[in-house]
């Protein structure tokens, strides 16, 4: 593993630790509903402040169960991750293909020139 990869892995590790620690330390234990959404807590707070408040509009479509909802959230994350992976894959492929392409084009004549055009194009 080179230094770059190590730093990237370390970044991911810290993010994972930040997510897992609250669970591992049981920080939700005192709550009525441990690790509920902050938005649901805000709804509760609103009804505490103003017990008469009634939401005046309801979602046009509501996922019928928690499973469907988490499936849709997973879909959202998968869509995003897919596009990101496509982007980085394409960039990597282009970068790897570039030395070949420019070597073919100018027969590997001007090394500095190829480097410059690579920097400009990528």
């Amino acid at each position: 593993m080179n230094k770059n990869t190590k730093i990237n892995a370390l970044l991911l590790l810290v993010v994972a630790a930040l997510a897992v620690l609250p669970l591992a330390l049981g920080l939700g234990d005192g709550e009525e509903e441990p690790f509920a959404g902050a938005d649901a807590q805000a709804e509760t707070a609103i009804t505490e402040i103003d017990p008469d408040y009634e939401p005046w509009f309801s979602p046009l479509y509501e996922p019928p169960s928690g499973e469907i909802e988490s499936a849709l959230f997973a879909l959202q994350a998968a869509l995003g991750a897919g596009v990101l992976a496509y982007y980085f894959g394409l960039r990597r492929g282009r970068r790897q293909g570039e030395p070949h392409a420019s070597a073919e084009q100018d027969g590997g004549a001007a090394e500095g020139g190829a480097g410059e055009s690579a920097a400009r194009r990528s």
């Binding site: 709550e31 690790f35 959404g37 994350a77």
Partner: peptide, 11 residues
């Protein structure tokens, strides 16, 4: 899309 647990015991 990622709901992550936090120190407040909520997500």
């Amino acid at each position: 899309a990622l709901k992550i647990p936090s120190v407040t015991g909520s997500c």
